[in-house]
Computed example of a mutant assay.
Amino acid sequence: MIVALKDGRWRITNLNLDHNHDLNPGSRFFRSHVYMSDEEKALIRTMKRCNIPTRKIVIVLAYIRGGMDKLPYNKRKVGNYGTTINRELENSDVMEVQQYFQKKQAESLGFFYSMEVDAKNKVRSVFWTDARSRTMYQEYGDCISFDTTFLTNKYNLPFAPFVGISPHGKTYLFACALIVNETANTFKWLFQQFLAAMGGKAPKSIITDQDKAMESAIKDVFPQETHRTCLFHVMKKVEEQMCRVFQLNQGLYEDFHDIVNNSLTEK
């Protein structure tokens, strides 16, 4: 049908009532043909919670339907539904964490957790520890190691563990945290929560990397303790900066490591 505007009125200028295409074109992507069952939506929700990529979700759904050509929707439709699910999960994750922590605290009075919130009451950082970790800290908490090297894969938040070691060489995890960033204010809040959880007992020494924000927060919260730089980070920097010197002086690399690792002088 062809319609044209003439003299201010729309007029049909040509009309062909004969069909010029098949009555059933078989397109599975017509809006009227797109259909996602409740079972498929539930399966997508489950796979999203397991962090399965959209392309693999589509493959699974196509297999269930009997082939990709039997799937009445495309990858974009699955992706759009996945985005809706992600929004729901983002809004409920913090509540689920808080409910879990409250349950643990009810089961054990020694469980301790704390959440930092911003001006809009939005959670920024989370800190937690349990009764056994707090007990081990009282015994072996003179020296602790603190690092934020690891990032969580979903929210890209730095994971911050407080780790110690016993006189017998056994490693203990004293506390953990997920922090919003690596600024001095965030570290200061985190160290304050750690101090509160451990009954006000501060470590005698703490080992970190060469992060200036950590150094600033440690001076504020643990002013009496000795702050040491992690040997791994020091040696890594030395090897990066002194690589050519070691190459030009045969035996210097071995002597350097012998002095560092086998020193008999108390530091």
Rank of each mutant, 00 (worst) to 15 (best):
E182Y: 05
Q193G: 00
N156T: 10
P158F: 11
G8T: 02
I12D: 06
R244H: 13
L23D: 08
K56C: 01
S92Y: 07
I144S: 05
A213G: 06
I207S: 05
I64C: 02
K75H: 12
P53V: 04
A202K: 14
I165R: 15
E240M: 09
I59L: 10
F191N: 00
T208F: 04
Q102D: 15
D211P: 05
R28K: 15
V58I: 14
A213Y: 08
V234L: 15
H21A: 08
R45L: 03
I206Y: 07
I207H: 06
H233I: 03
L71K: 04
V34N: 04
V3M: 10
K188D: 05
P161M: 10
K120T: 08
N16D: 14
I52R: 06
L264W: 10
F127H: 02
F150N: 07
Y100L: 14
A4S: 11
I12M: 12
K236C: 03
D18Y: 12
F187H: 06
L71T: 02
T54L: 10
K56W: 06
Q192D: 13
M198H: 06
L43R: 14
H33V: 00
Y113R: 02
S37T: 15
K154Q: 12
T135W: 15
S108H: 09
S216K: 15
C243G: 00
Q138C: 06
V163I: 15
A160F: 11
L190I: 01
R134K: 13
M214C: 04
A177D: 07
Q105D: 01
H33W: 09
I207N: 10
I2G: 13
Y137Q: 04
I57M: 12
R87N: 14
R11L: 13
D93P: 01
R55L: 08
T46Q: 14
L190C: 05
T226P: 00
A42M: 07
C143E: 04
E239T: 13
F191W: 07
G8L: 01
L248M: 10
F101D: 02
V78L: 03
R134P: 13
N91E: 15
I59G: 09
T265E: 11
S216R: 11
A202E: 14
H33S: 12
T148A: 12
C143H: 09
T152W: 07
M95A: 13
F127A: 01
N121W: 12
C230M: 09
L43K: 15
L157P: 08
F222M: 00
P25W: 03
F112H: 10
F246I: 00
H227D: 04
N80V: 03
N80M: 05
I59K: 12
A197R: 07
F30M: 11
Q241G: 00
K120H: 13
D211W: 03
H227S: 06
D147R: 03
V163R: 05
F194V: 01
Q247V: 11
Y81R: 05
R49P: 00
T149D: 06
A217E: 01
C176L: 11
T186S: 08
Q105H: 11
G82S: 15
K201I: 11
A177G: 08
K122C: 02
V78P: 09
N261Q: 08
E88A: 10
K219V: 01
S37M: 07
M36F: 08
I144N: 01
M136I: 01
E107A: 09
K237I: 00
Q224V: 04
D142A: 07
Q102H: 13
H21E: 11
H168Q: 09
D142G: 08
G66N: 06
A175H: 02
S108F: 09
